[in-house]
């Protein structure tokens, strides 16, 4: 039903737009989309146009293939045929981290960083993890503090925190003040969070989401206060910093698998399985392409395929 709605919406949007003479992009401009995307004084050559068409077709086909694959994976997972996920040490340490903080009488901290705004998909992937930490905190009677860098992500964090407490019947543990909006941008957020960390002395710190330069600042502050730290990001340039400063680091794809493993949601599990199959297919394409390149007849074909995707 939803897929039909999505397709209908796309069709509605792609329909001819209403033409008004006094609006920009109408009348003369509305005759061709090419007029909006390429300069009018340069005529594209036939070959370049054909190559652009191939590239568009290749990208569209790949996207459709991934979409169909992910949807199939989700349907299969809902029927109980999800692929198993191996243990991720960082996730297993969640319980230990929160229990340690509780024993030490110090709070836990969960943050998605100073640049993870509402547009980042990583934010949504981190919310099941926040919910899990909140559930553990609620269960053990530990306080969880959540610094937030963007006002629009504050309700998302607050809802995940509250849901986590509700999961274990500890809604009374939820305090709105524990989810704190620290404005001013990446570095001011980092400074404010570091200050909050030094004041509250959290014994368990969780860093998940989209990270940039503030990753090391917070992780080093956590080290300084002797916190058990678990980080997870798909930002490859930040992984070394987390590896150096944290006790457990969830790297790259593990980050995406984490939310599926923790939530056991069929949607997440199914799409995760589909992703793995796609990666296998891509690896197969790479290996096959390398081998076929050595045979003259296939080499041209592989080269045209490479150009189409390039």
């Amino acid at each position: 039903m939803r897929i039909v709605l999505v397709l209908t919406l796309l069709l509605m949007l792609t329909g001819p737009p209403p033409v008004r003479a006094d609006e920009p992009g109408t009348a003369q401009n509305a005759t061709s989309a090419a007029a909006t995307s390429m300069p009018t004084d340069v005529e594209p050559t036939e070959e370049a146009s054909l190559r652009a068409d191939h590239r568009f077709a290749a990208h569209a086909a790949l996207l459709i293939l991934i979409v169909v694959g992910v949807l199939t994976g989700i349907v299969l997972a809902r029927r109980g045929r999800a692929l198993p996920i191996r243990d991720i040490p960082g996730l297993n340490a969640f319980d230990e981290a929160v229990a340690r903080a509780t024993e030490m009488g110090r709070p836990s901290l969960f943050t998605t960083g100073g640049v993870c705004d509402i547009r980042r998909v990583q934010l949504y992937a981190s919310m099941p993890l926040l919910r899990r930490v909140a559930a553990l905190s609620g269960e053990l009677g530990n306080r969880l503090i959540v610094p937030v860098a963007y006002p629009e992500t504050l309700p998302v964090h607050a809802n995940a925190l509250r849901d986590g407490y509700i999961d274990v019947g500890a809604l009374e543990a939820f305090r709105a003040d524990d989810v704190r909006f620290l404005p001013g941008g990446q570095f001011f957020f980092a400074m404010a969070t570091m200050g909050w960390m030094l004041k509250e002395q959290p014994a368990a710190c969780f860093y998940f989401g989209w990270w940039e330069a503030d990753s090391l600042m917070l992780a080093e502050t956590g080290q300084a206060i002797n916190a058990l730290q678990i980080a997870g990001t798909d930002q490859l340039y930040q992984v070394p910093f987390f590896v150096a400063a944290c006790d457990y680091t969830i790297i790259g794809e593990e980050f995406w698998a984490s939310s599926a493993k923790i939530s056991r949601d069929p949607g997440l599990l199914g799409s995760l399985g589909a992703q793995d199959l796609f990666k296998l297919a891509i690896v197969g394409l790479i290996v096959g392409g390398v081998l076929l390149c050595h045979y003259g007849r296939f080499a041209e074909w592989v080269d045209s395929l490479r150009k189409a995707f390039g």
């Binding site: 996207l63 998909v121 995406w256 589909a274 891509i282």
Partner: peptide, 10 residues
Amino acid sequence: VAVIAASLRI
């Protein structure tokens, strides 16, 4: 691939 899948789910 994971980002595409997550976007699709959303």
